[in-house]
Design a protein around this nucleic acid. Sequence first.
DNA 1: CAGGATCCTGGCTGATACTG
DNA 2: CAGTATCAGCCAGGATCCTG
Lengths: 141, 141
Amino acid sequence: MSQGASVVPFEVDASCVAYATGERAKACTVREVLDRVGGKWSIGIIVEASQAPVRFTELERTVEGISRRMLTLTLRNLERDGLLTRTVYPTVPPKVEYRATPMALELYDTLVALTGWADRHRETIAAARDEYDREHGAAVA
Amino acid sequence: MSQGASVVPFEVDASCVAYATGERAKACTVREVLDRVGGKWSIGIIVEASQAPVRFTELERTVEGISRRMLTLTLRNLERDGLLTRTVYPTVPPKVEYRATPMALELYDTLVALTGWADRHRETIAAARDEYDREHGAAVA
DNA sequence: CAGGATCCTGGCTGATACTG
DNA sequence: CAGTATCAGCCAGGATCCTG
């Protein structure tokens, strides 16, 4: 985190540059990737599927608030992007297991760091929000 | 985005639990925090503002693709949550500087890790996506 | 059990125009 | 320069009903 540089266009690493410039053509943009991961339910699902293989209904209960539709959609997208594998067991009551791919597992630590950060600062953020609302007209929901 | 509390079967750490259970009441949910950070433009702005103080127009040029409106809105939200400070210099051409707060700076490394991961795997993801589309009837958008 | 299909809404978002 | 205001569109997301 260099802050000394005064002129500093950006001394960021390649990934951030690619992110900022929206450099495409090659493959997915960093933004495209982040959009997928940053989806409302993706993180929760990836985290769950990183612990152990999970079944559809399991996720439906674990990831609170998700609708069946969104679970299906998110699952499909994550599978499409190679972040989850979907295994169907042709048993009589169908059984489908989702598990994180190595690529997704590699992301796990970062996600834990992210949720950890969020967790550590929630109160501070809530406080900041309250104060901001108090100073400025309030009511911003 | 309303959620109820419940039980989490897995042995995740506290942050993930808080995330999964959507435990509120205290402060912001982990999800609420992540929603803010996970916004379409937040990461880019935080990353920029973590390098050095940035001005409005600077961000407008650096964060490619953002509209003036969204820049303003995202900036306001980030400021409200205490992730950015806004400094107004009452000069004749107005000058406003945004800089990341310590809390946001703490997040910087994680964000770099995240964008780094995204960058490293963009091609893999694009490939997985292509293959998925080829196997399944294509057109899943 | 694990989806698929459909309908519908609200919020995020972009485009455009105006201002201190 | 650094915003604010307004209008309109898209689509993520929810609710509901149906199936292999």
